[in-house]
Design a protein around this nucleic acid. Structure first.
Length: 295
DNA sequence: TTGCAGGGGTCAA
DNA sequence: TTGACCCCTGCA
């Protein structure tokens, strides 16, 4: 069948999508926006989204999704993989200089996933002063402790728990996930949502600067985490999450000197405009993989 | 082998 | 504006 410009075919527990451009699983799943997609021995990626386990394979314009069906493709995966967006056009818009041409070329198959905002919020609270392998372990531990078990091809996976599950637990139990000092932030954040003090759905209706301030009311959420949550949940794209890697790449390649967070943010807003979030992702991936500015 | 720095930031003083 | 912070890996 034809679905929004793609040729989609449903087979036994599998979907094939023809005509998918600007899609590279390595770039998408390892550019730092998500923590629950694991590369398999055959090069495909497996992960859990909205309580569903999925296996993803891409080759020559054909996207293959295993352990799913047409209904879930139209209801979940089409949006999740941002298939309605023309990334070729976005890339054109941000390749404003030689640096960006390099970065975009390097991460040419990046797409910004539209992830669940609650899961993104907790995941990026965990990311503070942390390393990616341990962030992944902690998110996985929280899922296996509080989420639901799902099976895919004989292997066990776990959904990410709801706020209720985490607000109901004790700090002592939660600390088994090895989140360290971030566990109390996770507890408090879950409670704020569960008690109705905060509502993540409201963020959609806010201007970017308001949404950012709103998210920063959560314990453990500062400007960087707030921007990540907005960008990786597909809520706002005119943010420029500035972590140590982005700061380094901006200082080394653009400023040619040390620069403050504000300088970098202002520059990005002015230079990339509404596409700042996309530019950040190509720059981050480029900087981290090349270890730009690392000692 | 042991010890120590430092990491996708944030909080509190 | 500055140091502490859980935990863990890398490196001397």
């Amino acid at each position: 069948m034809e679905y929004k410009g793609y040729k989609v075919e449903e087979m036994e527990n599998k979907i094939s999508v023809e005509g998918v451009k600007d899609f590279n699983p390595v770039h998408i799943f390892e550019c730092g926006q998500c923590f629950r997609w694991i590369r398999q021995a055959d090069g495909t990626y497996s992960g859990v989204v909205k309580g569903r386990a999925l296996n993803v394979c891409y080759k020559d314009g054909r996207l293959e999704l295993y352990n799913t069906n047409l209904t879930d493709f139209t209801k979940i995966w089409y949006d999740y993989f941002d298939l309605g967006k023309d990334y070729s056009q976005i890339k054109e818009g941000i390749m404003k200089d030689e640096i960006m041409r390099e970065a975009v070329k390097f991460g040419s198959g990046i797409r910004l996933l539209k992830q669940d905002i609650w899961e993104t919020l907790i995941s990026f609270i965990i990311s503070a002063n942390n390393r990616i392998p341990r962030i992944m372990k902690t998110v996985e531990a929280i899922s296996s402790m509080y989420g639901n078990e799902i099976e895919m091809y004989g292997k066990k996976y776990y959904s990410f728990p709801e706020a209720k599950e985490l607000s109901d637990t004790t700090l002592e139990k939660l600390e088994v996930c090895r989140g360290g000092f971030r566990c109390k932030y996770i507890m408090r954040t879950s409670q704020m949502i569960e008690e109705g003090i905060m509502n993540l759905e409201e963020v959609n209706e806010m201007e970017t600067f308001r949404a950012r301030d709103y998210l920063m009311q959560f314990n453990g959420v500062g400007p960087k985490v707030a921007d990540c949550v907005l960008l990786y949940s597909g809520t706002k794209y005119d943010v420029f999450p500035t972590d140590v890697w982005v700061k380094r790449v901006m200082e080394e390649l653009y400023f040619k000197r040390e620069a403050s967070m504000k300088e970098i943010q202002d520059f990005a807003a002015d230079y990339f405009g509404d596409l700042a979030g996309f530019a950040q992702q190509y720059l981050f991936y480029y900087a981290r993989e090349h270890r730009i500015g690392a000692k």
